[in-house]
Write a protein that binds this DNA or RNA. Sequence first.
DNA 1: AAACAGGTGCTAA
DNA 2: TTAGCACCTGTT
Length: 312
Amino acid sequence: MGAQRVAEVDVRKQALDEPGVLQVQLPSPVSLQVSLECGQVFRWKRCDFQGCPDIGIAYKGVTGGTGLIMGQSQPLSDLVWVRYDPGAVSPQDVRDTVLRYLSAEDDIPSIESRLAASGEVMREAVTFGRGLRIIKQDPWEALASYVLSINNSITNISRIIGYLSERLGEPCGLGEKSFPGPERIAGADLTCLRECKCGFRAQNLLDAARKVSGGEIDLDAIPTMTVDEARRELMRIRGVGPKVADCVLLFGYHKLEVFPVDVWVARAVSRYFMGGRPVSPEEARAEGLKRFGQLAGYAQEYLFYYLRSQEL
DNA sequence: AAACAGGTGCTAA
DNA sequence: TTAGCACCTGTT
């Protein structure tokens, strides 16, 4: 019913040479709302899935180098509707991009049940965050984003990334602009980055862009390293400490065995697993790694989303 | 108005 | 090794 409706709209829009529409089937349910709003990505804005009232929730953003709108008619479903610019990208590429971005191959039912079985708190956190998927971001964009996240608010991080894309990125469909590559940012000057409201992080971002574009840091080599090596490598960049490095490994390289510790996660570990005793970030990290092993990344994101929703 | 936000680098013990 | 502090900018 809803599908038919969308198909009709699709045909009409195509005839008008406007963005196309397709649906992507995932192997297990996903919640776009949870996955895109839990704070792991900064590019997606709520919007209408134009002309399709059945699609209750939709987001516009950029991934895989193209502007997309993703939407769902139900909050938790294995079906995702996608609107794209047919002049910029093929339907098959859109499908592949979305499947990859949403980590279609992660066995979510298994991850959810194993974490839920690990204790009462995790059971509640998983229930609350059902449909969460660790997004596969572009490694450079993840690095830049988390360099910008230092001592910053999520809304402000999103805004800065928007400014940088608007100013230095390239049109990539649906009126969106891509996130500028390392060469582009390395070629910009400090003034430009300050004008994009990077603040004191401008210097750090520039350092990251220079090291990456100059080959001093090889982002393509990270997957061949052990997590510890990769961590040390990333931390050679100014402004990249343990937390940022772990976020880059989790969100840019899908290293699910890392456990990034920020103030919220440290708070969660203290409250739920250490009887309320204050813990250092390093102690919280050790506890997370020990407790969750290969699922640490997912556990961290459920905990973060769960605790924040309670206290925000 | 003052404090805080997905931390990190620097300095001093 | 670790504690204390400053830091752009926007919000409350």
